[in-house]
Simulated scan of single mutants.
Amino acid sequence: MGHDHAAHARGGTSDRRWLLAALAVIVVFMVAEVVAGLLAHSLALVADAGHMLTDAAALGLAVVASRIAERPARGAFTYGFTRVDALSGQANGITLLLLAVWFVVEGVRRLFDPSPVQGGVVVVVAAIGAVINVLATWLAGRADRSGLNVRGVLAHLVSDIWAFGATLVSGVVVLATGWLRADAVATFVVAALMAWTGLGLVRAAGRVFLEAAPRDTDPAGVAASLVATAGVAEVHDLHVWMIGTTETAVSAHVLVDPEFDCHAVSARLRSVLAEQWSIGHVTLQADHVDAAGHNAAECADAHGEIHVAPAPLP
């Protein structure tokens, strides 16, 4: 199966430009929000800025991971560097979870000892922040969203839009009623969004590291489609796993009916996996089977696409 490395490189460069544009927007506003939050004595604004820091980190990691993932497989890294995508996603998720814990602790303290909050500043900054995050989400969304990097970035940015909404509401409540604890309540909402997003990223990365099948790929369904192929007597030792967030691999031992050519059957099976399941990284061991259902002969492949079982000992 061919692969257009030049096209992939062009796509990666374009993605990085969109991500860098979103990063610039986020960083500029994040600095402004920290200053505004300190001046307004608003923990909710500082919490939002902390969330935006994780957005900036996610964007930065996505850019770096995108560049590293383009490196070809070499040396000890026979699968290449596709799992860098999952590594950065996991790092982003853990960071979000840790920040969520910290903001909950600070929010509890503010519930018992509320600080004076300038509601007008909170409202203005939150409204601008929501617009900025919509712009950053649009920019990042122009990149390829198939990888965990960009999906993680978008999850960050979308949750930030909701967080700014909660902060905006708290500012309005402070202005209208003078109830200062609304700032702490908004902080809890931001922390909950951070925890939800972070947990999702950690779980998604964990599926890659544990070599689970993709959520949209049912191993039982894969086995059924292979067994339904003409000439296949049995399929066992089937493994379906994610090499990275965008690439799936399959390996299996296939027993072929004696009247069929096992190389031709293997070729059909690879076509089935590519067309029905979009899986191109396939390793098959194909053996003929006798009338009793036992291995009768091993198939050899001069091109090495079928892995041959060793001959039985005398």
Rank of each mutant, 00 (worst) to 15 (best):
S271Y: 07
G80C: 06
G206M: 06
H307N: 13
H303L: 14
M1L: 05
V169L: 07
R181Y: 10
V134I: 09
L38K: 11
F81R: 09
L284R: 08
V289E: 13
F103G: 06
E70F: 02
V104Y: 05
A191D: 00
G37H: 04
L284I: 08
S88G: 05
D218P: 15
A192C: 02
L175R: 06
I128S: 14
V185L: 00
L226V: 09
M52N: 15
S146Q: 10
L38P: 08
L168R: 00
S251W: 13
V104R: 01
V289C: 12
R207K: 15
L210E: 06
R67K: 03
E247N: 07
L38N: 11
A22H: 00
A205T: 03
G147E: 03
M30P: 06
L23I: 00
G89N: 07
T229I: 11
A230F: 02
T245C: 13
I128Y: 12
H303N: 15
R83A: 06
L53Q: 02
T229G: 05
T167D: 09
D301Y: 14
V172W: 06
V108P: 06
A32E: 07
T82Y: 06
W277N: 07
S266T: 15
E70V: 05
R207C: 10
M1C: 08
G200W: 04
L61N: 06
D261S: 07
T248E: 07
P258S: 07
D4F: 00
A91L: 12
A24I: 07
V131N: 10
L201N: 02
T137S: 02
S146C: 03
G171D: 07
L53Y: 04
S271V: 09
F188Q: 00
V108N: 06
A264N: 02
R17Y: 01
E70R: 09
G304F: 13
V232W: 04
E211C: 14
A182C: 05
F77W: 09
L61T: 01
G165H: 02
L175H: 08
L96P: 04
A44K: 00
P310Y: 14
E234L: 14
I161L: 08
H41L: 10
V250P: 11
A56Y: 04
T229P: 08
A252M: 11
A228M: 12
G120K: 14
W241C: 13
R145G: 07
T197N: 05
V121L: 13
T248W: 08
G120L: 14
T95K: 07
D290R: 11
V254A: 12
L98I: 15
V121K: 12
S42L: 02
A166P: 05
R181G: 11
L53T: 01
A24D: 11
A224Q: 13
I132T: 09
P116F: 12
M194A: 01
G171T: 09
L135P: 03
G206R: 01
L23Q: 02
P258A: 00
D55C: 05
G60I: 00
N149P: 12
D4Y: 01
G231P: 05
P312V: 15
A309W: 14
T54V: 08
E234Y: 12
V108A: 04
V222Y: 10
A267Q: 14
V232R: 11
V208D: 08
R203L: 09
G280K: 03
A220W: 13
D237T: 12
L61F: 07
I306M: 15
A252K: 12
S266N: 09
R83F: 06
V121G: 12
